[in-house]
Amino acid sequence: MSSHELKTGPLEYRRQEDQMTILGFWIFLGAEIVLFATLFATYAVLFGRTADSTPPMELFEPGIVLIMTFLLLTSSFTCGLAIHEMRRGNAKALRNWMIVTLVLGTAFLGFEIYEFIHYAHEGATMQSSAYWSAFFTLAGTHGLHVTLGIGWVILLLIQLAKRGLTPKTSRKFFVIGLYWHFLDVVWIFIFTSVYLIGMVV
């Protein structure tokens, strides 16, 4: 537990304990990859097992999915900008870009909830068949991650307001940044292998 602090480099990397936290988070992301991969594997194996319920190609709409994708891609970009500003020492810009990210993330979530309710009205729920169980679990787990991410960002914004930019708050923002970009990566694969392939096959 050495508390030696480097004098240069990004704030979040200066203390060894923050380096370790960031490394630990990378390892956690490795575990998250496997978590989502398991859900993808389940989805792939159960693909087409819709029993008597509505098949996905009748429900998936390219428009709404593209909007969701762009919302999340943009939020990932603004989140990247927030971290960029943080490294320039600009706490205010960090806060503003983070708020933009939050708004975009919430919008994404809103669309997803709308989408789920819409499917449920069309008779496709978690309970209706193996395929839909897999679909709702995969997309839902991602949605849950986004929800937690939003709550987390709010907590960090409060801390930023209270404490300003310190090695510790910077590290926390850097970590949430990683998390947010990672969720975007997961969404890219959901977009591709669930929605696009679901609309093609």
Partner: peptide
């Protein structure tokens, strides 16, 4: 970690199928 995570993801998905 990212690389091995990706390898494992491939094993999981392709292996399960």
């Amino acid at each position: 970690m990212m690389f091995h995570g990706a390898v494992l993801a491939a094993i999981l998905v392709a292996g399960s199928l």
